[in-house]
Amino acid sequence: MTEPREVRLRPPRNAVDRRAVGWWRTRSLIATAVPVTVLAVVGALVAPATAWLLTAAGAVAVLGLGCTAFFPAWWFRVHRWEVTDDAVYVRTGALWQEWRIAPMSRIQTVDTVRGPLERAFRLATVTVTTASSKGAIRVEGLDHQLAADLAERLTAITRATPGDAT
């Protein structure tokens, strides 16, 4: 302890793309629709259990729709990222929030992933891994062009930074 002063982590500089909210909402809707449909169809077919299954389907639908309405906006406020010359800094989560920091000199790989749904929203996820089995950093919901540029920039910086990454 140098001096007793109160510090906290500042939020990373950049927000994720606005379209990420739409992507999260769609993902969440799909995740809700699948079990609801299954429950409803089975409920319609199996006569003795119809009431129970439809109630369950309704409960899942309400819960899923609630999450769809509530969480993406919160995620959008929390999810932020920043890349300096020395480190990658990311904040994620909602109820459980997480700040991850990895120095450039320890970065081993930089991946860009675009799932089908992400592609529809022109988004991409950049994953940065270090030598630690628990140190991977994911930046979700970036504009795909930005993500490609970022990956390229990260690769260039890591190549230029000395260190054996362990």
Binding site: W99, R100, I101, A102, P103, T130, A131
Partner: peptide
């Protein structure tokens, strides 16, 4: 140490 993760639940 090759990075930090800070975690906080509600």
């Amino acid at each position: 140490v090759i990075g930090w993760t800070v975690r906080q639940s509600w």
